[in-house]
């Protein structure tokens, strides 16, 4: 699959993702995970039709350019420090433009949290009921044998 997000759009998505998913104020998520995220996000967008791509780009535009302004800084989101990016996004969330933030966040979160490490961090084990019951059954059997 060829790259459909431009280099600048990838930078904007990366800056957004780093701020959104940072677990501390001084450290973005691991670089290899973010690289996986950007590659998979690009594949996601490649499968969208023109309108859905435009909608995503519009949401990303609002996050990239409007969030910093709402946060009191005349700069692109990617140019801000991590704490300032986080502050800008939270400021945007309090405005009527939060729908655009929600749209962008929904897509990047869907992709990001499918990374096994990201899923593990939020406790998403992705097990189904049958698997859990089977494990519980095996555990009970083992306990019986031990007894």
């Amino acid at each position: 699959m060829t790259q459909v997000l431009s280099d600048s759009a990838r930078r904007d998505a990366m800056a957004f993702g780093e701020a959104l998913f940072a677990r501390t104020l001084d450290q973005a998520p691991p670089a290899d995970r973010m690289a996986w995220f950007i590659t998979d996000l690009d594949d996601f967008v490649a499968h969208l039709n023109v309108r859905a791509r435009m909608l995503f780009r519009l949401c990303l535009f609002v996050v990239t350019w409007i969030a910093p302004i709402v946060g009191g800084r005349m700069s692109r989101l990617a140019s801000l420090s991590l704490p300032d990016r986080i502050e800008a996004l939270e400021a945007l969330e309090r405005t009527p433009l939060s729908l655009a933030l929600f749209g962008a966040r929904a897509i990047v979160s869907l992709v990001y949290y499918e990374h096994p490490d990201a899923a593990r961090e939020i406790g998403w084990d992705r097990k189904c009921l049958t698997a859990v019951r089977a494990e519980a059954g095996e555990a009970r059997e083992e306990a019986t044998v031990t007894t």
Partner: peptide, 25 residues
């Protein structure tokens, strides 16, 4: 809905968002 969607609808960004996202289970 998938846990990733729950996390997506949690407010804030950065550590505050991560703390909420960690509660999806």
């Amino acid at each position: 809905v998938p846990a990733s969607v729950i996390a997506a609808t949690m407010p804030y960004a950065g550590p505050k968002h991560a703390k909420l996202a960690e509660q999806v289970d």
